[in-house]
Amino acid sequence: MIQLVDVTKTFDRFAAVKGANMMVPKGAIYGLLGPNGAGKTTLLKMMAGILRQDRGTITVDGEDVWENVRVKQRLLFLPDFVYFFPHATIRQMADFYEQLYPSFSRGRFTELRSAFSLDVDQKIQQFSKGMQRQAAFWLAFSVQPDVLIMDEPLDGLDAFVRRHVKQLLIEEVAEREMTVVISSHNLRELEDLCDIVGLMAQGTVRMERDLNELRAGMHKIQVAFRGGFPSELAERLDIVHREERGSIVLLVVRGEKRSIEETVSSFAPLILDVLPLSLEEIFVYEMGDVVDVRETVVG
């Protein structure tokens, strides 16, 4: 479990993170969403023990991250621009990681060799950007960390590799209960990956939501009534959005699916369809109070 309480970080006079709070349960994939300049990278680097917060606490399983070897041995950070030693090959980097991380697994490294078809003895800097990122993933998965923190990791990967990496990530989480924090400025990138989404803007985490709860707690329905939409029904439903297309009314409603169906059915509708709601749509409605950021991440 990763917990951030009232974390603040200021560069010179610029406050990059201002009193951020965040909670990532063990085994969760946490998506940190936010526009560029929201403070995501700074927050992640503090979480990884690279930067030191000016104020507040950052703990992994109750222990401070800063200068804590025990925590950092279980935690791996994948930056937005991956770094390798100059002239290093994947084999050399693997040796390096093996000496630093007790959880590094040779077996896993060899196993993943087929997944990433990269030459282990070629200099990584001669790889393309996407290949370098794959190499970073390969090494990261071989380390088998308990906590994996990734800053915009899927940028620059083609669709095939992206799906592949996501698959590996999900497996890893399922098998080892790895905790993952992953940042992105694009909601769609995280749609089929995250359990929890945090929305960051102007240095704070504005809201945190469990996606399954969100999905279960908001629905889009299409209804039609003889004699128009009963006003009493509008009062009994928690309507987030309403749109009329002739006699058909499109509603986005908060609540459990069954109770919504029951409530609507009791007014004898001519049509009642419950339609699937995309994560994007949920966000558009859920983030009513953070309108300023909505467009950029949902875009």
Binding site: K45, A48, G49, I50, K72, L75, F77, Y83
Partner: peptide
């Protein structure tokens, strides 16, 4: 910058 971030993310005390 990048190597500083990398090295300081490793499990070694300063």
């Amino acid at each position: 910058k990048r190597s500083a971030d990398f090295i300081h993310s490793l499990p070694i005390r300063r």
